[in-house]
Amino acid sequence: MPTVKMTVNGKPVSAEVEARTLLVHFLREHLDLTGTHVGCDTAQCGACTVHVGGKAVKSCNMLAVQADGAEVTTIEGLATGDTLHPMQEAFRDHHGLQCGFCTPGMVMSAIDLVKRKADLSEAEIRAGLEGNICRCTGYHNIVKAVQAGAAATRGR
């Protein structure tokens, strides 16, 4: 079996995995990082969004071996100790979730979005989050949370 080495949330990890292991299963089952969710398994819902090399990707759509040597960030890597990332804080403040299943992916996509363009209109946020599906909220509070999270990230 191939050995994969990567940096996940700042820590070097290494494991022997079957080559067919998807990145999301590697994160959840080998590293016990279960904050990244599997929703549709077909690259539609975005619940499995993580950052690879600083870019948002759907981790159900990539093999762990394809991320060999890469820097990977998951939802667990955002907070500093007990201090949440401003985007996480904004989702909490604005009630940008109900059941919470889509939330890790939403937050990871939102951070990628804000990183590429700091000053986002509501329309840009809605377009930028098209790859993340939420079945509860109607997106309204998610958009508010991203606007607030973007402002807080700028001010940081």
């Binding site: 690259a43 975005g46 969004t49 870019k55 948002a56 990707v57 759907k58 759509n61 990539m62 996509s109 990628d112 979005l113 930028g128 098209e130 790859g131 993340n132």
Partner: peptide
């Protein structure tokens, strides 16, 4: 095409 995550890959 797809969504941003898809466009990145």
């Amino acid at each position: 095409i797809g969504s941003i995550q898809i466009q990145n890959r």
